[in-house]
Design a protein around this nucleic acid. Sequence first.
DNA 1: ATCGGTGATGTCAGTCAATGACATCACTGG
DNA 2: CCAGTGATGTCATTGACTGACATCACCGAT
Lengths: 187, 187
Amino acid sequence: MGRWEPDAAGRLREAAMALYAERGYDGTTVAEIADRAGVTARTFFRHFADKREVLFAGSEQLERHMVEALAAAPADATPMEAVTAAVLATAEFFDDIRRDYSRRRAAVITSTPELRERELIKMATLTTSLTDGLLERGVAPDVAALAAETGVAVFRVSFERWIAAPDDVPIADVLQATLKTLATLTA
Amino acid sequence: MGRWEPDAAGRLREAAMALYAERGYDGTTVAEIADRAGVTARTFFRHFADKREVLFAGSEQLERHMVEALAAAPADATPMEAVTAAVLATAEFFDDIRRDYSRRRAAVITSTPELRERELIKMATLTTSLTDGLLERGVAPDVAALAAETGVAVFRVSFERWIAAPDDVPIADVLQATLKTLATLTA
DNA sequence: ATCGGTGATGTCAGTCAATGACATCACTGG
DNA sequence: CCAGTGATGTCATTGACTGACATCACCGAT
């Protein structure tokens, strides 16, 4: 396929993460990322819309997965039950291998305003998708929006906790714990 | 003060809004904005951090105002009562004159991803500030975060409604109505 | 009224993100 | 072995943003 080695996008992702972690986002140029990945800057922009997007490559996949889990929930499930299924489905994306990457990624994002902006809009998009999924299940608009918002909040909080947790704690446990906390809060 | 006319920042704001509305955000260059305002592009960047920020100039002011209103609430007010005071205080910023500007501004923002990102981070910052304000009132962290989030949501929804509402509806009424809806929802 | 300081602006040069147009190479199927 | 396809390289260009330095208006002190 490629002119040389395969998986240029993957190499670009790794190169970007390494350089962002090492020199910071602002201190890294696209040309440097491309060099390290063995391609040109032009190729970088063929794989990623901009310099930020390289850190959010998996997000569409995750979103699709959550929406599918939402749709796959039993027809008689309550809105919150369906959302819970979608949230729990994220566990399949974050195994122990991804944890180290996730940690470094989170560190870079929180320290870079431009990247925090991008993350916020990704979360907003995710919320919209889940809301739409609930609407297709016949959920009332108000309830759908609120349930989706809550689900994304649970995912966000859980993800942060998982990153900060010891290495032997799987994300599934954290998600369950967060959902339990939510239940006690609203009880 | 200025080399020529005063209030260069104000002229830049108006010029930017006019051009964004006319040619779109992407179709407008900073040089064009500066030209219309009678200054150079370099001066634009002395007043605004970047091309996006020119549309969010008043936000720090609004945020400060809300935080002050929050702090000024009676010591025995509940967290939600204090947040309500902060939300209602925004009415002083959006008179009828600002309405037309707000409408055009909203139209540009919703149609430009880059600007939506910036708006999201502004709202996130506002939420953080309100949370901090509540913490200083001795509110428990969980409650503070939730109350702040709710308050910002009310403001956001109200603002959208106000823009869509007929010209004779003041924003204060919309804010009250939204708060009332919230009360019935949580009842 | 003159002088010097201060702050805002202009000028200039430069870096870097991002995009369009076109050439080129690797791989595929016939 | 050849033509087609897709990914990549090359080149040129635009435009956002920054640093360094000069310049001008204004203000207070002399």
